[in-house]
């Protein structure tokens, strides 16, 4: 067999393998939906597509699919930015100074295993229902991956990089801005990517809590109360898609800006 033909075959084989399971699930779903004939348990694919294809249409007075998705996205970004603004400087401080590290380490180790959603009742008690509570819970989810990766990245900056800068006359602040930050940036970025993923999971769950009245998580929960399983499934698909898109954007920046990490030695 000639080489290019072999390549074409292998590309098709790969594509076939990738799509095999989703296609099987869709076919199985449709068959099952027809057999069950109960849209309150498993709606037909058509009715889910109906919702997905009209993303701007208001759903039972709760706002549209896209509108709610953007509300959720806004909350995640707010919580994520707050978490990053705290975690990155703290991680750099802990990575550079043993004193700061020892001071914060035990406290943070204690907080780390607590699932972000365990903070929900406390957040409600402290901040009432609203954006601040959301930001708090989301921030809790995003904080630790960003902190731990920043710490890792700062510790991973090669000693000779720092010494070379010292020889060339760098002061501590310049070492931070010219060596530590760019050297640790790829790892910090990885932390932000993981942190955003967790924040996205948190927002959806947090929006399902009582008292919320907007966001994609709320829309799903409310659709359950109205027995609209097709909206639930459409909402879940939108959550997944947004997660994939954001993660992809993070990956694109990573590949463009931090190419040197893969290629260095």
């Amino acid at each position: 067999m000639n080489r290019s033909l072999f390549k074409v075959v292998s590309v098709w084989r790969k594509a076939f393998l990738k799509f095999l399971l989703p296609v099987a699930i869709i076919i199985g779903w449709e068959i099952l939906a027809i057999v069950l004939n109960n849209p309150f348990i498993l709606p037909r694919i058509g009715s889910v597509l109906e919702v997905l294809l009209h993303p701007f249409v208001d759903i039972l007075g709760n706002g549209s699919l896209i509108g709610n998705a953007f509300i959720s996205l806004g909350r995640v970004i707010a919580g994520f930015v707050v978490a990053a603004a705290l975690a990155i400087p703290l991680g750099i401080g802990m990575g550079r100074s043993n004193t700061i590290y020892e001071f914060f380490d035990s406290f943070l180790q204690l907080l780390r295993p607590i699932p972000p959603l365990a903070w929900v009742p406390l957040a409600l008690a402290w901040f009432k229902i609203g954006l601040v509570s959301m930001v708090f819970i989301i921030g809790m989810g995003a904080f630790f991956p960003i902190l731990l990766n920043t710490l890792d990245g700062v510790k991973g900056v090669k000693k000779t990089w720092i010494e070379a800068a010292e020889i060339l006359g760098a002061r501590e602040r310049q070492i931070l801005s010219h060596v530590i930050l760019p050297g640790a940036a790829p790892t910090i970025w990885t932390g932000m990517r993981v942190g955003f993923g967790i924040a996205w999971m948190c927002v959806v769950a947090a929006e399902m809590m009582p008292g919320t009245n907007s966001g994609i998580g709320y829309l799903i929960m409310s659709s359950y109360n109205w027995g609209q399983v097709n909206v639930i499934i459409a909402g879940i698909i939108v959550i997944g898609l947004i997660g994939i898109i954001v993660d992809y954007l993070f990956k694109v920046v990573d590949r463009r800006s931090f190419k040197w990490r893969e290629l260095e030695r």
């Binding site: 000779t160 990089w161 070379a164 760019p182 050297g183 040197w260 990490r261 260095e264």
Partner: peptide, 16 residues
């Protein structure tokens, strides 16, 4: 500043 140094390894900043 009167002394410059060249190391054996990892000399350049790979992001520059």
């Amino acid at each position: 500043p009167k002394l410059g140094m060249i190391f054996q390894d990892y000399l350049l900043y790979p992001w520059r």
